[in-house]
Design a binder for these strands. Structure first.
Length: 274
DNA sequence: CGGCGGTCCTGTCAGC
DNA sequence: TGCTGACAGGACCGCC
């Protein structure tokens, strides 16, 4: 699930519930995530107080009172769930467990282990290997259609690949790329440098609005996400094209098309998107 | 350098 | 029912 809106939702939920709490204990049930957990991981977290929870791209940044940052990326299948009471038993793929005082339990669960957990010194976070290459935040007011146009002009790759390229714009994954292109009425395979200024304005607007709406609908189910038991509670956002091959386009009733780009499924309306 | 394809890993679902 | 293959919301690496 986790594209920018999901990560933002998780961050807001975490921020509301763990800011100001102290980590009593960190436990790794397995260390071989995408990047192996550092050997001093548990020790580095113990007794640290959470000062803030923020987001950069699809990374969750849990700020600690010693200036370090506990970084979590959910990959394709990761979740970070809070529980109010101790669990009778952990599930398969519950890899990292954090206990807080006052009591809360935070469980990092990730079947595919494409997720990542790391620790970094806070002051040089932007210089961190994970972050140096990252592009613009799409919801930043400074990320304008003019900036996007400049980005698109410098690439001949399909526009969908470009808006999913985290070095150019962050946070847009496969689902929201499809949705934003539909909103902008742009065919996903168009070479980026052939997109006009006018189309770019629609695309920037499509990206911002679809992300904002998804965050809003995530916010409304925030209580579900932090419920003390149960699964990830990712919200059900309504998609116009993603996963809807062959079903009628909401605008023109043409059956939606699907294709593959860079190994990822793309959904679009061949009538509306040119 | 840019762009594409393969790869990491496990779970789920469709089809036989 | 059981097996097989395709596919899944991400990102890195290496090759042309």
């Amino acid at each position: 699930m986790p594209e920018l809106p999901e990560v933002e939702t998780v961050c807001r939920g975490l921020s509301a519930h763990i800011t100001g709490r102290t980590i009593v204990r960190a436990t790794a049930r397995r260390r071989d995530l995408r990047v192996p957990l550092p050997h001093d991981f548990e020790r580095s977290l113990a007794d640290r107080k959470i000062t803030a929870v923020t987001r950069r791209a699809k990374y969750i940044l849990i700020h600690l009172d010693d200036g370090k940052i506990f970084i979590v990326h959910l990959g394709m299948s990761g979740s970070l769930i809070l529980h109010d009471a101790p669990l009778p038993n952990f599930r398969k793929h519950d890899h990292v467990i954090i206990e807080f005082s006052p009591y809360k339990l935070m469980v990092f669960h990730d079947p595919r282990r494409f997720g990542l957990i790391a620790l970094a010194a806070g002051k040089d976070i932007e210089g961190n290997k994970l972050f140096v290459q990252l592009g613009k935040e799409p919801l930043d007011p400074e990320t304008t259609a003019e900036r996007l146009y400049d980005i698109l002009q410098h690439s001949r790759a399909p526009v969908k690949s470009v808006i999913m390229d985290q070095r150019k714009i962050v946070g847009v994954g496969n689902i929201y790329a499809c949705e934003a292109l539909f909103r902008a009425r742009i065919h996903p395979a168009r070479p980026a440098n052939k997109i006009t200024k006018k189309e770019t304005a629609r695309l920037m607007n499509g990206i911002k609005t679809v992300l904002e709406e998804a965050i809003r609908s995530g916010g409304s189910t925030l209580r579900d996400y932090v419920r003390s038991s149960g699964d990830a509670g990712y919200f059900q956002h309504h998609f116009s094209v993603y996963g809807r091959a062959k079903t009628p386009c909401t605008l023109c009733r043409t059956p939606l098309s699907t294709t593959r780009q860079n190994g990822r499924s793309t959904f679009f309306c061949q009538t509306c998107q040119k």
